[in-house]
């Protein structure tokens, strides 16, 4: 972990502590909670895609498994939410392990399609297995989470809780990146042959990171179930998996902070767009929420074409460029004086 990351985590923590004092509207707090859940899933996905270089368009499936495990076990078997969440994680570990073994032998396009196929199957099952998942009508009355008897019954409480988990997840992920394991993963991304010639067990590493990223997704799903208190297959379709990839890619695939930025920006985008539509209405332009998908696609495309390393990297570099320019100007002036 480097100094920059400590500063980043400290800044994020401070921001999180302040936000509920600024945002008192429950609706916006809710949006920020969903943002946290997306961030959690994206941190995991970024470890897999940006660091180990393995694409997955199937992480929506792991979110779904986590959410359904929590929902089914708490409502039908009366388990405590924590036990259910733990069971969800264990289930996801098994599923990711057995899906990962054959899948991660594939590369590039094949891997992308295989994970997409897996996500579609999970979605189809969640719709079709009515007896188990409630089918399209879903599962209701999921209990709230409570910590040591302290119930998370308000949006502010859940806000702090969900972001605390994001920060914990971020802390673990950043530690991992700068460790021996993180270097092994980056080596796999750089060159699989060279990595294995240096003793990195690429098969095991790929499966481990796939499982780890699936755990992040699963916890995100469980939290979703316990926040919304109702789930149906709708939010867990293939489009959600694609959206996660979009968030990571827009923010910057090779940087965990980039993935976080992307997740935050794209989660807030619909709200921003609805603000914008009010504004545009003043000019006689009617903006409908139907256009959101189009805007998502356009942003993703533009970023991929012009800033392939993502917004975060672009921002970082332009700030650096401004500083360099300033330094050079200052230097130029002092030299001129001499």
């Amino acid at each position: 972990m480097k100094q920059k990351d400590y500063i980043g985590i400290a800044a994020l923590t401070t921001l999180i502590i302040i936000v509920p004092y600024l945002v008192t509207n429950d609706y916006y707090l809710g949006v920020l909670i969903f943002t946290a859940l997306n961030c959690l899933a994206c941190i995991g996905l970024c470890l897999l895609m940006g660091y180990a270089g393995q694409i997955s368009i199937g992480h929506g499936a792991f979110i779904a498994i986590g959410a359904y495990a929590s929902a089914i076990l708490t409502t039908k078997l009366g388990w405590s939410p924590w036990a259910a969440m733990g069971f969800g994680v264990v289930t996801v570990i098994f599923v990711a392990f057995f899906v990962g073994i054959p899948t991660l032998r594939l590369k590039g396009h094949y891997l992308a399609m295989a994970t997409l196929g897996f996500a579609s199957i999970v979605h189809i099952v969640s719709v079709a297995a009515v007896g188990f998942t409630g089918g399209p009508s879903g599962i209701m009355n999921i209990p709230r989470l409570s910590i040591f008897g302290f119930q998370l019954n308000s949006d502010v409480k859940f806000f702090y809780f969900s972001w605390a988990i994001v920060i914990a997840g971020l802390y673990l992920a950043v530690n991992l990146i700068y460790s021996r394991v993180g270097r092994g993963l980056k080596a796999i991304h750089g060159s699989q042959d060279a990595a294995s010639s240096l003793g990195v067990n690429i098969t095991v590493y790929k499966i481990k990171i796939f499982v780890l990223s699936a755990i992040y997704a699963s916890i995100s799903g469980s939290l979703y179930a316990h926040y919304v208190l109702y789930i149906d297959p709708g939010p867990f379709d293939v489009m959600h998996s694609v959206l996660l990839v979009t968030m990571v890619a827009v923010g910057g695939i090779h940087n965990i902070w980039g993935a976080l930025t992307g997740a935050i920006l794209l989660s807030l985008l619909p709200e921003f767009l609805s603000f914008l539509s009010d504004y545009l209405q003043g000019f006689g332009i009617r903006y409908k929420t139907d256009y959101d998908t189009l805007v998502y696609g356009a942003i993703l495309l533009l970023i991929m074409l012009f800033l392939p390393e993502g917004l975060f990297d672009g921002l970082y570099r332009s700030i650096k460029a401004v500083f360099n320019l300033k330094n050079r100007l200052m230097k130029g002036r002092s030299q001129g004086a001499v």
Binding site: H109, G297, M304, L305
Partner: peptide, 11 residues
């Protein structure tokens, strides 16, 4: 891959 995904989202 992501570019073609972006195009599919746009369409």
């Amino acid at each position: 891959i992501i570019i073609t995904i972006a195009v599919s989202i746009i369409i």
